[in-house]
Amino acid sequence: MFLKSKIGLFKKSLFLCLFLIMGSFAVGQNFDLAGFGYTDTVPCPYFIEFQKGNKIEISWYNANQKRVKKIYTYKKKYIGRFPLFELNADMPEDLYAGLNPESKNYYGNKFMLLTGLAKKALGENKDGIVGLGMLPARKGKKASDFFSDFPMGGTGEYPCFNYENVSSYFVEESKEGKRDYKIENLSIMEQDTPWVEGVDGWGIGETFTISTENRSFYKYILLMNGYISASNPKLYDENGRIKKIMVEGVISGKKKEFTVKDTPHPQTVDIGFLPEQEDVKITILDVYKGTKYEDTAIHFMILWRTEVIPYE
């Protein structure tokens, strides 16, 4: 009996150890940010690069068009599902000299980051980053976008996508007026710009079609799930997110079900089963239910050419 109990205890301990190890892979980050950077383009370029040891370099062109840089250390914490990077000093006023005037209201030391690792594709020699950076709301002001970044590599200009045959969209009535969460929002990587289905219930069965003017072959759908807002991050969990979708080639008729991760970070769905480039019909089959609203949101969805691994 004693030997059996010892063996049983060993098995339980081994199982618990394996469970914890597997759990750490399930919830931990999939890649290290060190060595990767983000940039915004002219006329107000600035550059953010993560370094080892919780350090980050921010460089920019000041009002005199001189490039300057500063090294910060940071701490990372979470507001809901959103990683918040807190720097050890305020971002300099110089950085905002040429930016959108609304951004000049912000001289804080925090930014939120949703990001994914874009695996290298044809014409590229290294992996890249897809990301949306947001400045959280501060001193009663709304949050603002800090940057959005796409690695274009050998694919040329960002392609134009059209969204057709949408079965519904949500129209919100409030004291501030009417707001449409229309299907065209799916091509906008900014905060507070989701498409939200507009039927009673969770939107099971709702459909739309993605088409592109660029007829090169896209092997993936790139998406950001849910309602993304740095002003009100809890909206992600309060609203529904897509869980299972059907992807169907409009010409070939070939179709396949996919499970989508419940994360606001960029992720991809592999649609390489389609024989050639064609319009793609999306149908919602199941959702992660929201805690407050019976509405399902998708923040961003385009056709893409390479795999993207969500940060966490």
Rank of each mutant, 00 (worst) to 15 (best):
K11V: 13
Y46N: 04
K11P: 03
V27L: 02
T41F: 12
P43E: 00
L33P: 01
G37H: 01
G37Y: 09
P43A: 07
L20R: 07
L14A: 13
K11F: 11
G37V: 06
V27Q: 09
G28I: 13
V42A: 15
C44F: 03
C17V: 12
L18Q: 10
Y46V: 05
I21E: 01
C17R: 09
A26D: 02
L14H: 02
S24Y: 10
T39Q: 00
F31I: 02
F15V: 15
I21T: 13
D32T: 05
Q29Y: 14
L14D: 08
V42G: 14
V27K: 05
G28E: 13
G35C: 13
L14Q: 09
Y38E: 11
D40F: 07
L14F: 05
F15P: 07
M22K: 07
T39A: 08
D32E: 07
V27H: 09
G23T: 02
D32P: 03
F25N: 02
C17A: 13
L18E: 12
F19L: 15
M22A: 13
C17D: 05
A34G: 02
A26Y: 15
T41I: 14
Y46K: 01
Y46C: 05
A26M: 12
F25E: 09
T41D: 12
P43F: 10
L18Y: 02
L33D: 08
F31K: 01
L20Q: 11
N30Y: 11
K11S: 12
L16S: 15
F36D: 04
F36S: 08
S13I: 06
L14R: 05
D40H: 12
K12A: 15
